[in-house]
């Protein structure tokens, strides 16, 4: 589904990714771990299309609705409509834009792209409440402006709500566990697990092995200095938790 080939990328002239290769297939969950500054978040931002990051070399191929596409040639909104989703590490506050309106605009933009009939506000309300229930969210939540005055946990839950609404084929969760207490993490993880199926894939970026007890990965990658230095099964995360990263950086 996703093929990252020899990706080199920089921000403000500083090279961050230095020849990254990553292949993700439908049905798989990949976890990415690694020390600060190793390029984990940069990868997520490049896949989402953040204009602040520049790709200097390499390619990102993605299985879209019309076959293999060059993801980097698409605008951020086109990537989203093709089923790429990034759960932000720091979700952006959007003052004045009501969450319910935002979610419906997003949902319908994806519908239009695929030639599917848009949902009217009443049907969408029912649909949305189903998803909110799954994440144990308060009804009033969607009347508030997007992420404005949300607690850290609420922001992260809102990201997963958006994921549930948009039902992406490739979801990248960028440190979704940071800022979550243990109960919230269980709820969010349960939500993520419900969205998991054979046709979609997830890439979970985290600092802590703890999250991987709830969202069980098939493959764990360790990032270091803009490259993957080691890949393995779930046991690799446990090993890193115990031994740190130093032994991998040699």
């Amino acid at each position: 589904m996703l093929n990252v080939k020899d990706l080199h990328a920089s921000v403000d002239g500083t090279a961050i990714l230095k020849g990254l290769n990553l292949s993700v297939r439908a049905g798989e969950v990949h976890a990415i771990m690694g020390p600060n500054g190793s390029g984990k978040s940069t990868l997520s931002k490049i896949i989402a299309g953040n204009p602040q990051y520049s790709v200097d070399k390499g390619a990102v191929e993605y299985e879209g609705s019309t076959g293999t596409i060059d993801l980097l040639s698409l605008e951020p909104e086109e990537r989203a409509r093709e089923g790429v989703f990034l759960a932000f590490q720091y979700p952006v506050e959007v003052p004045g834009v009501q969450t319910a309106l935002f979610l419906r605009a997003a949902y319908n933009a994806v519908c239009r792209h695929h030639g599917v009939e848009e949902m009217d506000p009443i049907d969408f309300d029912v649909f949305l409440h189903e998803k909110m229930k799954m994440l144990d969210m308060d009804d009033k939540f969607i009347d508030r402006a997007v992420n404005v005055d949300f607690s850290g946990g609420e922001k992260k839950r809102n990201e997963i709500l958006q994921m549930a609404v948009l039902n992406p084929r490739l979801a990248i969760l960028d440190e979704t566990d940071s800022g979550l207490d243990i109960d919230s993490m269980k709820i969010v993880s349960a939500g993520v697990n419900k969205l998991r199926n054979r046709r979609n894939a997830m890439v979970v970026i985290t600092h802590y092995q703890r999250l991987l007890n709830y969202i069980k990965p098939d493959i764990v990658h360790i990032f270091c200095q803009g490259r993957i230095v080691k890949s393995g099964g779930p046991e690799l995360a446990l090993e890193v938790e115990e031994r740190g990263y130093d032994w991998l950086m040699k």
């Binding site: 951020p76 909104e77 989203a80 409509r81 979700p91 935002f102 605009a105 997003a106 792209h113």
Partner: peptide, 8 residues
């Protein structure tokens, strides 16, 4: 950008 990443 945030809105764009949601398809808008």
């Amino acid at each position: 950008f945030y809105l764009q990443t949601r398809g808008i």
